[in-house]
Design a protein around this nucleic acid. Structure first.
Lengths: 122, 122
DNA sequence: CAAATATAACTAAATATTTAGTTTAAACTA
DNA sequence: TAGTTTAAACTAAATATTTAGTTATATTTG
């Protein structure tokens, strides 16, 4: 699956955040200095050509929306990291991260609890 | 902290793997089609200028080595992902990944066990 | 020491990415 | 409907990345 460049990712994040938006709304989400209309428009059309973004016509312009779930993309990115740095092992990745960042085991226990709770609901 | 480009990362992975290496050994690690000597040499010198790589003289040439721990870089990358896609929350990231990939809770339990075991040793 | 060889440094060119100006088309308004 | 406005499409240029050729330098060997 395709990788987003830095500028592309920034705009995807905004689209994931807003759900859908025209170019003006996207620009609005940038902090100063805001990029030019044409800059954003260009990147959006690149994303369109890469099939990350779709649009529908509305009034005078286009309303853009993401065609790929944020979840799908982040999952793929995590997998890439896991494969490249932890021999594809989820356990390695998590235990490394816990140790490295002094994450309390209580946090892991809480995650387990929450997951088990939701499993019950099924 | 600086981000590695695709070509740079490939070579860093090899250096992390080998510990240290000259250009020839790096090329050797590539599968066909192997890049040209000059290509690898250029990227190594870029990594040098970015302070990712150092070298020492040996005989006729240079022996290169990573100046950044693989652990440091992967930790930073994971943090970036966590911040960008999971509001900086470790719990969100892990529970998302577990659900999304149908990872058995047993895996998480095992991680906990292992960590607790090592904590005892301290 | 001179020639051959191996390697790094320098340079360049192809490609990808980022940024934004100009032109064109659509639709709103007076 | 003609002029004005707004946004998209087209185009271009600056910058970053990737790839590799050429030249310079140092080491080995005959």
């Amino acid at each position: 699956m395709k990788q987003l460049t830095k500028a592309e990712e920034e705009i995807m994040q905004i689209l994931w955040d807003l759900g859908e938006a025209n170019v003006a709304s996207i620009i609005n989400k940038f902090s100063e200095p805001k990029p030019a209309f044409t800059t954003v428009s260009t990147i959006v059309r690149i994303l369109e050509s890469k099939d990350f973004v779709g649009y529908r016509k509305e009034g005078r312009g286009h309303i853009y929306f993401s065609k790929i779930e944020k979840e799908t993309y982040s999952n793929q990115s995590l997998h890439k990291l896991m494969d490249g740095y932890f021999q594809g092992s989820f356990q390695s990745m998590v235990s490394f991260f816990v140790r490295k960042n002094d994450i309390a085991t209580k946090d892991l226990e809480e995650i387990l609890e929450k997951i088990n709770k939701n499993e019950d609901k099924k």
